[in-house]
Design a protein around this nucleic acid. Structure first.
Lengths: 227, 227
DNA sequence: AGCAGGTTGTAAGGAAATTGTAAGGCGTCT
DNA sequence: AGACGCCTTACAATTTCCTTACAACCTGCT
């Protein structure tokens, strides 16, 4: 579930936001001042942050800087009571993704949060979309395809994730837990054989001889490796 | 130095843009209404224009027409609060080079301005209105029509946007989020099926065999693609 | 070498998710 | 009112993915 950190000192606004966003299916972490916000950010690693500019102690700008020191990607939405404050947000190049001026409507803030999450979600998902080569196979993530000579192979997003991971740590063994975590996420059951199944199917498509794999090699008792 | 004319009635947005773009090394000419924008354009001959759609007096569309009467080449970037307004931008044959839906991030607008300037510097024309061909279909955005042999097909502004996006990134997979963001804008709710419905209807009209689409192909689990 | 126990490969069928599309409703424009 | 475009809904078609079951394999031990 998507976690949203809300830093807002006004109790009423904060509670209203919490309620609305919870109804929308987000997990809300409320913070009532800047220090708490920074603490909660570290502890919870939220996927999205709403920051009020005016807060006791650390103000929104400071909180934003602290957060950016840890994470330059997490989307940040500023909430401001005064329109002038936006100048500062923009001028300081804090890396804010959006801002809203109070008062704002419920639908408006939900639409913006969704839009930002959509936008940032489709941007690579953390790592780059650059092409890379494994053995004699050229993988082109943005096309969800791989090429061998003139041959063109379709890949699923999951295929690309697996290959990318192996490529990024080529020479090292990727154990099953890591693979499962990175590709399937937290809700992977270790006793499931989905991972083996996927590797098997993938090999059938990308390996010249799936029985003697050159791209995805098995390291018995440990995991998989490329090179 | 590259001169950028900014026509935007909201003081804070305008000032913020001015500050940011000045920091980036552009010379900024701010105008707070449509008439001023036209005057300043005549007086200063800027290299680039950012136009808010909603302005008192002359609105963005009118300003654009006036500017185009003098200069058919200068790149124009529309700023709109609502994604729907883009339909009008496209439909009116205004010759816009790009558009952005508010709210937008600082980095985003800088990136677009750079991209457009690069494009128009190297080639020599705007992109949004140019005709293009997909498979055996010739799409003419300014007429909101497509042609196959003698056959003439009507297209909605939204159809054109979808096709343009697929054409601009042909070979690449356009995921649903990107499509939703670029075509529907901030108000698109992910659980809506409007996008599928639209693709289905569009295929019925433009594909010879909608069951075996050659223009808009489905990449299951990922998005759509044209090549 | 042969065996036991654990690990991995993979075919098959069914579950689950994704996409296609017909039908109906709502609002707008004429 | 009627036509039109666009959206939601509901269900069908499609595709992918996972579970299961068993075969094959590796490793360490006797």
């Amino acid at each position: 579930m998507t976690k949203i950190l809300i830093a807002e000192d006004d109790d009423h606004t904060r509670d209203a936001l919490r309620e609305v966003l919870t109804m929308e299916g987000y997990e809300v972490i409320p913070a009532s001042d800047g220090l708490q916000a920074v603490d909660f950010f570290r502890a919870e690693s939220p996927d999205f942050v709403c920051l009020d500019v005016m807060m006791p102690g650390l103000n929104g700008y400071e909180v934003c800087k602290q957060i950016r020191r840890q994470d330059e990607k997490v989307p940040i939405l500023f909430l401001t009571a005064k329109a002038e404050e936006i100048d500062t947000v923009l001028g300081l190049e804090l890396g804010a993704d959006d801002y809203m001026t109070k008062p704002f409507g419920v639908k408006e803030i939900i639409a913006r949060i969704r839009a930002i999450l959509r936008r940032t979600a489709s941007r690579g998902g953390g790592r780059t979309d650059d092409d890379f080569t494994m053995d004699d196979l050229r993988i082109v993530p943005t096309e969800l395809r791989a090429y061998r000579d003139k041959l063109e192979l379709a890949l699923s997003p999951r295929d690309v994730k697996v290959l990318r991971l192996l490529y990024d740590r080529r020479g090292k063994v990727i154990d099953r837990n890591t693979l499962a975590d990175e590709v399937w996420g937290v809700d992977y059951f270790p006793e499931s054989r989905a991972l083996d199944q996927h590797i098997s199917q993938l090999r059938k498509r990308i390996e010249k001889d799936p029985a003697q794999p050159r791209i995805i090699r098995t390291v018995h008792g440990a995991g998989y490796r490329f090179e």
